[in-house]
Amino acid sequence: MNKAIIPKVLRWARQKSPWLLHFNTGGCNGCDIEILSLLTPRYDVERFGILKESSPRHADILICTGPVTQQVKPRLQRIYDQMPEPKWVLAVGSCSCSGGIFSGAYNILGGIDKVLPVDMYIAGCPCRPEAIIDGIVKLLGQVK
């Protein structure tokens, strides 16, 4: 019985308390301000227990915006390594999914998946806050 209950409780806790760490890997700010507006009265994601944390060590979900630039790549890797397991990566915006409008530029490596394993892609340029919430919900639905 113990074996059945503990994973269930853990799953519940992880689904109900996702803490985000936001990192702009070279985006245009459009998605970033939409992520910030998630916190504000109109969308208020604290309803779902989502908090925006500032230290990688406290976060569960790394939420990246923008294409990965050459300079930002080592830093992105380091931030990911600093996060404790279990952790997920969310690519927000078309350019963090694939490089988007910036693909082909000399300083752009491409999407986040060129550097990190991405768990959920959210398209849109910029993403609507509703889309970001939907992405997080779908990501949490997969949590075991």
Binding site: N24, G26, G27, G66, P67, T69, Q71, V72, R75, I101, F102, G104, A105, Y106, N107, I108
Partner: peptide
């Protein structure tokens, strides 16, 4: 330079209309 994407160079590779976006 963390957000340097090279937009000015990229603009030279695209047409005037594409560049608006």
């Amino acid at each position: 330079g963390y957000v340097h994407r090279g937009i000015e160079k990229l603009a030279e590779q695209r047409t005037y209309i594409q560049n608006v976006y």
